[in-house]
Write a protein that binds this DNA or RNA. Sequence first.
DNA 1: CTTAGTTGTTGATTATTGTCAAAAAAACAT
DNA 2: ATGTTTTTTTGACAATAATCAACAACTAAG
Lengths: 204, 204
Amino acid sequence: MIAVNLSDEDRWKKYNNFSPLISIFKKFHPLNDEIERRINQHTFPVSYKKNKYLVSPVDRNKFLFLIVKGVVRGFIKDGTAEITTWIAKENEVVGTIRNLWVEGDSEEYLQALEDVDLIAIPHVLSEYLYENFTEANIVGRKMMEQYYRSAEERAYLCRISSAEKRYKRFLVSFPDLINRVSLKHIASFLAIRLETLSRIRAKI
Amino acid sequence: MIAVNLSDEDRWKKYNNFSPLISIFKKFHPLNDEIERRINQHTFPVSYKKNKYLVSPVDRNKFLFLIVKGVVRGFIKDGTAEITTWIAKENEVVGTIRNLWVEGDSEEYLQALEDVDLIAIPHVLSEYLYENFTEANIVGRKMMEQYYRSAEERAYLCRISSAEKRYKRFLVSFPDLINRVSLKHIASFLAIRLETLSRIRAKI
DNA sequence: CTTAGTTGTTGATTATTGTCAAAAAAACAT
DNA sequence: ATGTTTTTTTGACAATAATCAACAACTAAG
């Protein structure tokens, strides 16, 4: 599914010779040279066309992805229906969550909602960095705090009582997504039907 | 609101002379003596009666709390209504989230749903430990990963299409809470009315 | 024990949202 | 451009859940 056929020299040509992950991490904490070297060596760019799935069941949980360009959604198959649990854009890191609380049929998928450019981060790399570099744990801790807050916001959003209020909250929480993501996915994220969302928008 | 009148010697008497926080942290990573000493010195036990609020607007965001005994919920005031976004029990760490994405009227509260014993963790302590001890970042990172997953579960749960399915998911995700928490709070967590929950339960 | 207050149940009614179907509008490919 | 597909809108109707109200069950306090 994901093949790496790039030599170390030209892998990052289009990104000024460095993995974009490095500048993201540096916003949280300075990195030492060895970490940067490892990141350049073991992460790699990958692209998907709009509507393609980022993870097949085969390599689920082998990578995280930094979104360099585009929008990605995460959803869970609930029988025949799909439940979109998040929508992420540039500079966010996405991935499937490993140990879902409840074992069962619910499977998580990632889908590109635009043509996307990503940086793939093998889990083995994250684990290696966490075990060998204290800076990695500082960066990881700070990023997780940020992602935890955004997950809390998603958990709050969908508990707002009326569909209209949820939509309005979406508009202020994610103003940039409304024009980039089709309404059917936003409806799913808001836990309402597309038709209902369409009527709410007509009313406002 | 929170007063500490204990000398260092007897503060932890009821917990075999150590802050219970230490054994929680040690499940994630070994701690050095200096960290343990700081934790014993700067965290302290505090108890609340059922239905009491853990944070007043005054000292919001000054502490996290480890729940040693009891159940706590977090909720957000949405006008007159309350939206319960999580319910936590023993061995979980809870607190208000600082920078909510959207500034505004939504205020977060913590409430004891049983008589609770807690360990208060001043934010200044967390910050100090993060800045001075690499182990703290390892523990913090791992704990945040765990809490992120549980927040994802909450975000998924409330997007399930029917009230009955959400309740059933609750039963498997939080089997221990159903007999400890009043139905009105569970209903709020499931984003349904108490009456609806009552009817669903009658039907099953 | 008795009373007051809270929590949970049940019924009747209303409101909101979902479902199904069709058409319009927009996006995409040739 | 042209036809094709996807997305979005609209309408009629059904189902689900909310609301209001009354009451029963359970707790807590005196």
